[in-house]
């Protein structure tokens, strides 16, 4: 009877709670974007897809690429912007054919200085990726 009551009244909210808590954990400890992952953090930060990825001090842009390559690169960079894991970074480096032993990866996010109506950027994430 208790199990039935739990399933009826609390199972779905419990699942929501567990997913949202896990997402907040990932936000705090894995630099995941608050926008995605079921934690309801939309609008807490600027949309992550406008962040910039710089590798070895070069901005990764999809401008000028053929449509197919551009889409593939966008997808790989979007994944890093949402959740910068070693796996996602490795996938991007492979796509860019960067086979150096050590690669500096930085994500910059836009920032506003509202007192002076100025638009600038700040470092959100930085890592030095080493080939396994």
């Amino acid at each position: 009877m208790r199990l039935k009551q739990f399933i009826l009244y609390w199972s779905v909210p419990s699942l929501l709670l567990a997913v949202a808590c896990f997402q907040i954990y990932q936000v705090k400890f894995e630099n995941k974007s608050q926008w995605k992952g079921g934690g309801f953090g939309m609008y807490s930060t600027i949309y992550p897809f406008v962040d910039e990825i710089w590798i070895n001090d070069e901005f990764i842009s999809t401008k000028g690429l053929p449509k197919k390559d551009s889409l593939k690169l966008k997808l790989l960079t979007y994944k890093i912007k949402v959740h910068p894991t070693q796996k996602h970074i490795q996938n991007l480096l492979e796509e860019l054919n960067l086979n150096k032993d050590s690669v500096k990866v930085q994500i910059f996010k836009p920032e506003f200085d509202l007192d002076k109506s100025v638009f600038t950027k700040t470092l959100r994430y930085e890592t030095t990726y080493r080939q396994p």
Partner: peptide
């Protein structure tokens, strides 16, 4: 709604107006 509030309160960027400014 509680998570929406919590996520905004734990994000200094939000209270500085960054998100809405964009």
């Amino acid at each position: 709604m509680s998570f929406a509030v919590l996520q905004k309160l734990i994000t200094p960027d939000y209270l500085k107006g960054n998100s809405i400014a964009m």
